[in-house]
């Protein structure tokens, strides 16, 4: 993975300079993420020293697979994405969007939503917003978006600042986590990353 990772890193820097962290369709699709020293696997056990290093290290965030199922009414919509982190820990503190007056963060437990003030993005880990789990809730929409539209969403992180994602509007039945006809990975839309 070393060669494609380095290439991806170089490409990301160029893209970041050109687009200031706003990355359009497909530019980074399939990117293995992570650069050299930070690309260690986060699944193993960690020593105290390493944990401290995680906190000190700069986060490297990559958002992918973002989508917004077409809502039933203008009252409410949900949004989903995955935030992968190949660097030090960060926190998602708020989300804003042109399409809604208010965007709130929720997790779901036993069929009940629980609003959260923030979500941790663990070092060398991921923050997952997916069907039936965590979700972004868009309230009082300015209009009802159609399938194929794109909604601009800004995710604000404590350390990494703001990442802007162009989120595609998908059919109401879209559920990539569950496989099936609608389970094919998105076409690269709905991605962004830190420089």
């Amino acid at each position: 993975m070393a060669a494609p990772t380095a290439a991806a890193g170089a490409r990301a820097r160029v893209v970041a300079l050109a687009l200031a962290a706003v990355v359009g369709c497909g530019a980074l699709a399939g990117c293995g993420g992570g650069s050299g020293a930070d690309g260690t696997d986060g699944t193993g056990g960690r020593s105290g020293g390493q944990a401290a290093a995680d906190t000190a290290a700069r986060p490297h965030l990559r958002i992918s697979g973002a989508f917004l199922p077409v809502p039933v009414t203008t009252g409410l919509a949900a949004g989903f994405c995955v935030v992968r982190n190949t660097g030090g820990a960060d926190t998602l503190t708020s989300v804003t969007s042109d399409i809604a007056d208010r965007v709130t963060l929720h997790r779901t437990r036993n069929g009940r939503m629980e609003m959260q003030d923030s979500f941790p993005v663990p070092a060398h880990g991921a923050l997952d917003f997916s069907r039936g789990g965590n979700h972004l809730m868009f309230e009082q929409l300015t209009h009802k978006p159609k399938v194929g539209d794109t909604v601009t969403v800004r995710l604000h992180f404590r350390r990494s600042g703001t990442l802007t994602v162009k989120v595609p509007v998908r059919p109401a039945t879209y559920n990539p986590g569950a496989g099936g006809a609608f389970g094919t990975p998105p076409d690269g839309a709905g991605s962004a990353r830190t420089p």
Partner: peptide
């Protein structure tokens, strides 16, 4: 319930389609 952004509309849409 209708003030449900995720699973309720998903379930009903799946059945409707």
């Amino acid at each position: 319930y209708t003030h449900c952004p995720d699973i309720c509309p998903l379930t009903m849409s799946n059945i409707a389609v």
